[in-house]
Design a binder for these strands. Structure first.
Lengths: 343, 343
DNA sequence: CATGCTTCTGTGAGCGTTCACAGTAGAGAA
DNA sequence: TTCTCTACTGTGAACGCTCACAGAAGCATG
């Protein structure tokens, strides 16, 4: 009855074991592990075999201790959490980032800065160098956590154009203005002329840009912007419902409405339904996001697809580049009109 | 023009710096850091002050290198990702776990095992000891990744009762059967007698248990279970829609239906609406989950709330206990009936 | 006064890597 | 021959921490 293996975790092999097995030195194994420059074919092969045989996996702690890198990045969510957690796009983004990083063998640490205590803990953790960089999701303007990290020189890539942060912050965003332009042009092409809009929050770049696209296209079409056709929401379903009611009261002759998020559009559809308006016959409805919500309603939403899969992979690409020493960069990605039944 | 601080990351203070500042040795600082036993009040205070002054944060890599612990845990999502990512409960769970862990200063590493390549990478990463334990979300029976980790002796806590894994795996789950019982009893109390059911996937414990609760209560009430009132779905909205259509065809006199998830219930509502049935007048509908979807439909869903916040905190509690050497444990948490308009 | 116990402190070793450097061998040039 | 160059390899020193151990000081006990 000697010590058995089952149940307990066996001490894993080290670079020493591999070196001994392969009949070379630690240094040579290390070189093989890190790119294989200045290694003879024979040594290369011997080390590869030894690694396979021993099941060796590099000890990242030891490596990090000496390199100063952690080979991990944080995914930081600050401020108004609820909204994000209800938004399925958030999931797509999170998954995309995780998988893009996994391809580089870099783990993603999820960090949620809700309470003041969490905020402190997270800034301390990140500033201490426990992650090499941060993917930031925060629509909040003047986010104090983000500002502190920026000041500490931590590589940072935001999702969506950040407000109130210095110019040294990279970001990746969909072309909100162009998406809005596409949708409004589409509504015009359907012959609609009294087009309302439920905007997103106007203290966010996305909210502002989508409204700007709307106004731009109307102006180009020679249609005067009518203030009674503009109401603003906060991307939530409830605010869409309330917005639609206001619009119906202010502009009974409205024949289309561009809603700056699918979730709000859900609310708009509900309100229109209650008011006895048929969609799209009486009023055409255009959404934004192409979230699962878009196909969960009747009629299914015509909407603007944001390329979330590309957004996530670009965020990772830009962050890794920045960690590698490159300068901050801004990436704007094109959107796409998805035609369904509501417009 | 000497090297300036701004932009670059400054080398952080070490335990040496703190020791010098406090006028004590490394050992004493280390003791303060790890619980403060066998430390004189004077030393304690001096070290605390030095830590504050220098802004010292422990280097986790150096610590892990010697302790063998990583002080981090993985959140592992395997198999049918899409379903999870559409399910808002997943977000609540993920957030809950992240925050519960944060309170212990333990980072959460998100891992998604989609492709075969990711699966390999993740098992290697975890088996190598780069996390101390794993929170597992996987409804798939006989999950190979989970099985491998279990065999490797990695502390593991599943969300929901896992199928096909040995008994050494802990899990935390809502009391599915009791929740189903509550809902069916509620439908009976409304005077309904021809109660249909759209089950979850019957290769998962949740699906089986919810159906069992349904059958149990009907039996208690002296109502014979009618096979034509039972159809099974996969928790997706589409399967709910299809299920409702089958039920309407098979049992036109149905006056209530218990749907094993809110997402499916959304589909059921849509199908009933199309068929001209009024809810709850003609047919009462009961859901399960109390997801945001429940209040996003008209009429709002009467449903069973699963205590997701407690599930996540219990998962973390059980995992940390197991990492600390305790035995595997199973935790079943009570559900709650939420009355709204659909039943 | 020796002995033991408790409480506290400092020291050296070592965790598993990478990195800088020294060194070797072989080829080609002077 | 001698020198230089290239391609490769091994070695010791670090990285920042914890842990085991030795020891000191204080106090009670024999």
């Amino acid at each position: 009855m000697t010590m058995s293996n089952s149940g307990g975790r066996r001490k894993p092999p080290t670079i020493h074991d591999v070196a001994r097995e392969a009949g070379v030195s630690r240094g040579t194994v290390s070189r093989v592990l890190n790119g294989g420059h200045y290694v003879s074919p024979a040594a290369q092969e011997a080390v590869d075999a030894a690694i396979r045989k021993t099941g060796y996996v590099v000890n990242r702690h030891a490596r990090s201790l000496i390199t100063g890198r952690s080979d991990s990045v944080g995914f930081l969510l600050t401020e108004p959490q609820e909204r994000f957690f209800e938004d399925p796009n958030f999931n797509v983004l999170l998954r995309g980032c995780t998988q893009a990083l996994a391809a580089h063998d870099i783990p993603l640490l999820l960090m949620i800065a809700g309470t003041e205590d969490e905020r402190r803990r997270i800034t301390r953790y990140i500033s201490a160098g426990h992650v090499d960089g941060v993917l930031l999701v925060s629509s909040h303007s003047g986010d104090p956590v983000a500002e502190e990290l920026r000041a500490a020189g931590v590589p940072l890539v935001a999702c969506g154009k950040p407000i109130g942060l210095g110019s040294k912050v990279s970001y990746v965003a969909a072309d909100d203005r162009d998406g809005a332009r596409d949708m409004v042009r589409h509504l015009l092409s359907l012959g609609r002329r009294r087009i309302g809009v439920v905007t997103g929050p106007l203290d966010t770049p996305g909210g502002v840009e989508r409204l700007a696209g709307y106004e731009e296209v109307l102006a180009q079409a020679g249609i005067k912007v009518d203030e009674s056709l503009i109401v603003s929401g906060d991307y939530s379903r409830a605010s869409g419902e309330a917005g639609a009611e206001r619009l119906l009261a202010q502009a009974p002759d409205m024949d289309a409405v561009f809603v700056a998020s699918d979730l709000m559009a859900q609310g708009v559809l509900a309100a229109l339904h209650r008011a006895g308006k048929r969609v799209p016959d009486d009023i055409a409805v255009g959404g934004f996001d192409d979230s699962p919500a878009a196909t969960a309603v009747t009629p299914e939403l015509t909407t603007i697809r944001q390329p979330w899969d590309r957004i996530s992979s670009e965020m990772v690409r830009v962050l890794l580049a920045q960690i590698g020493g490159e300068d901050a960069a801004a990436v704007i990605l094109p959107t796409e009109l998805v035609r369904r039944d509501s417009a």
